[in-house]
Nucleic acid binder design. Structure first.
Lengths: 120, 120
DNA sequence: CGAAAGCGTAACCTACAGGTTACGCGTTAG
DNA sequence: CTAACGCGTAACCTGTAGGTTACGCTTTCG
């Protein structure tokens, strides 16, 4: 959970995650949408990979990144625990169920090309 | 939300927040539970105050800190948005939930002594 | 096969986060 | 009134996060 919290803390990484929400993207496609250099983005992607928030799929000479919201569950649980008397934690519960549902449907994003899976 | 994410990212600050869940604590009481120096804890408290996650109450020569989970809502919403499959219907849903979010008083920790409120 | 595309890694630099000690200021106690 | 307490701030040091350029490896294409 520590790694997840750290990964979330950076605005560039948060934006990358939001990009990946609409489907997988190659490293170059992601880097092209930022004003910073490609290696900088590459290292942000490495942090996200280590945290488990993204998976990568090697397709030819390209590397696609896929969002994986699973690791968010731990952080969500911590937040819910912290805010127990608050009232908005119901949305966090919803988030967790959503995460589990997404876990089942993850294969929808996978298209029909072969890819060597490189999960962190 | 950026400040909240940054505040959450540090393990010491997370532990402070968990401590405050059971009631307000003075700066000295908090610092006494960590192996690091008191000024270091003081600056962690400053970060938490700036993020809005804690409020402070001056009582005599002591300064009590009180948990405020309100600012977590923004981050929670972002996480929920990320975990959902992309689509504008879901965004509307989240917006609606945010608008009707309850602002009920969190007077639970407040005891009966007078205190000058110093919210960030 | 040789050249170009697509990415990650290495080496390097700078800014800042997080730690320490020294200090100052307001408040309580004696 | 003076001394001690409680706490924040200033000044300083160090490790690391995040940026850059240079480079190397693998895959595709002429």
């Amino acid at each position: 959970m520590d790694q997840v919290a750290g990964a979330i803390a950076d605005p560039v990484r948060r934006e990358i995650l939001m990009m990946l929400r609409e489907g997988r993207l190659s490293a170059g496609e992601i880097a092209g949408r930022f004003p910073i250099s490609r290696p900088a983005v590459s290292r942000h992607l490495r942090v996200l990979r280590d945290s488990g928030l993204v998976r990568d799929e090697l397709v030819g000479r390209r590397r696609f990144y896929v969002l994986d919201t699973g690791p968010l569950a731990g952080l969500a649980e911590w937040m819910a625990l912290l805010a127990r008397p608050s009232g908005w934690e119901h949305r966090l519960d919803a988030l967790e169920t959503e995460i589990h549902r997404t876990r089942r449907e993850r294969r929808v994003h996978g298209t029909t090309d072969q890819a060597k899976e490189n999960t962190a």
